[in-house]
């Protein structure tokens, strides 16, 4: 599904990703954890194609295509979804209209029929229930004046509507109350299928109680320094990152 090899990326001449290797097979859920500023969001943005980040080395293949050659909208149309850590406000643009326009672009790319306003309303009502959002959000401008938690739910709502094959969730659980956390987890779990994969960036193992990952990776200073199962997340929660930093330092010295 997704194969990241030796990925290096920089922003404004500062190297941030320093050789990421990651394989995500179809149907898998991977969690990425790591201290602030270690490059998790950068990795997510690079996967989605943000032009502020320059890939200086390495490659990414997605469903056997060269992901880095694709425009951001083509990546989206090919089923890659990024739930933003900081969703952007778009004043004056109706949320329902925004989402339907995006959905229709994606349906078009899939060779499926576009959805009219009535069918869309039916679909979105169902998905709103899933994320426990009120229908009144549809009439508001995209993310404008949404609370932090509402913005995150809105990201999950969009994911549920667009049905991506690869979803990257960047700290979608941050700033959520316990109920909302379950809602987000429910949204992700509903999408779990043999042909879909999820990459979850999170600081808290709590979310992983609800969405059980197949793998947990630790990203420090632009590199994945440790990979393991769910128990790795538990250990991180108890002991923090210092022990990994130490081990990594020892290995580097020993090498």
């Amino acid at each position: 599904m997704l194969k990241i090899s030796n990925l290096h990326a920089s922003v404004e001449d500062t190297q941030i990703l320093k050789g990421i290797n990651l394989d995500v097979a179809a149907g898998e859920v991977h969690a990425i954890m790591g201290p602030n500023g270690s490059g998790k969001s950068t990795l997510a943005q690079v996967l989605a194609g943000h032009e502020a980040y320059e890939v200086t080395e390495g490659s990414v293949s997605y469903e056997d295509k060269d992901l880095l050659e694709m425009s951001p909208e083509d990546r989206a149309r090919e089923g890659l979804f990024l739930a933003f850590q900081y969703p952007v406000e778009i004043p004056g643009v109706n949320t329902a209209y925004f989402l339907r326009t995006g959905l229709n672009e994606i349906l078009k790319a899939r060779g499926q029929e576009e959805m009219d306003a009535i069918d869309f309303l039916q679909l979105i009502r169902e998905k709103l229930k899933l994320v426990e959002m009120d229908e009144s959000f549809l009439k508001r401008s995209v993310n404008e004046g949404f609370s932090g938690g509402e913005k995150k739910r809105h990201e999950v709502l969009q994911m549920a509507v667009l049905e991506p094959r690869l979803a990257v969730l960047d700290e979608t659980d941050s700033g959520l109350d316990i109920d909302a956390l379950k809602v987000v987890a429910e949204g992700v779990n509903q999408l779990r299928a043999p042909n879909r994969s999820t990459v979850i960036v999170t600081h808290y193992q709590r979310l992983l109680d609800y969405i059980v990952p197949d793998y947990v990776h630790v990203l420090i200073h632009g590199r994945i320094v440790r990979s393991g199962g769910k128990e790795l997340a538990l250990k991180l929660e108890e002991q923090g990152y210092d022990w990994i930093r130490e081990e990594v330092a020892e290995q580097t010295v020993g090498a």
Binding site: E51, P72, E73, R75, A76, F84, V88, I90, T101, E105
Partner: peptide, 18 residues
């Protein structure tokens, strides 16, 4: 007009023009 706004739209499948 924010690059980030355009990118957010791109990420939902919209072309830059749209």
């Amino acid at each position: 007009i924010g690059e980030d706004q355009i990118f957010y739209c791109n990420q939902r499948g919209l072309s830059t023009e749209d």
